[in-house]
Design a binder for these strands. Structure first.
Length: 119
DNA sequence: GGGTTGACGAAGA
DNA sequence: TTCTTCGCCAACC
């Protein structure tokens, strides 16, 4: 029986960077948003915020990954162009009670969800 | 194999 | 204070 040891996720550190990004993104509660840098920082790569964005691009259109809840540090929907349609990202956020004006999330600081602080 | 790009962010001038 | 530059690392040309 030791042929295949159950590869349990003992530690997230063993996971790929992309998977870890998706894992955190899934934890974002509805009606809340976070930033790429916050996720990167939580993963221990504070300076790899770009990789988080790149990971979202690689996610494709996976519903498990609420990429629309991830914006840059300013609360601007910088990646909305990567979603289907022109303002799908904004509509998804507004659908959760988040007000978005001109690609800018209103009351961003209050809606901000810090994975390090919440987790 | 090397240079550029990218859904970012922090630090420096 | 704003503007510029660097870092980060994977993917693309």
């Amino acid at each position: 029986m030791g042929v295949k040891d159950e590869i349990d996720i003992e530690s997230e550190s063993e996971m790929n960077f992309f998977d870890r990004v998706y894992n955190v993104a899934r934890l974002i509660p509805h009606g809340r948003v976070t930033s790429y840098g916050a996720i990167a920082k939580h993963l221990g790569a504070a300076r790899s915020a770009r990789m988080v964005g790149w990971a979202m691009n690689a996610c494709g259109g996976r519903e498990d990954v609420p990429a629309h809840r991830v914006v840059n540090r300013k609360g601007v929907l910088t990646g909305k162009h990567h979603f289907q349609g022109t303002n799908l990202m904004q509509q998804l956020l507004e659908s959760e009670g988040i007000r978005v004006i001109d690609n800018q999330i209103q009351n961003f600081e209050s809606l901000f969800w810090d994975p390090m602080k919440e987790l």
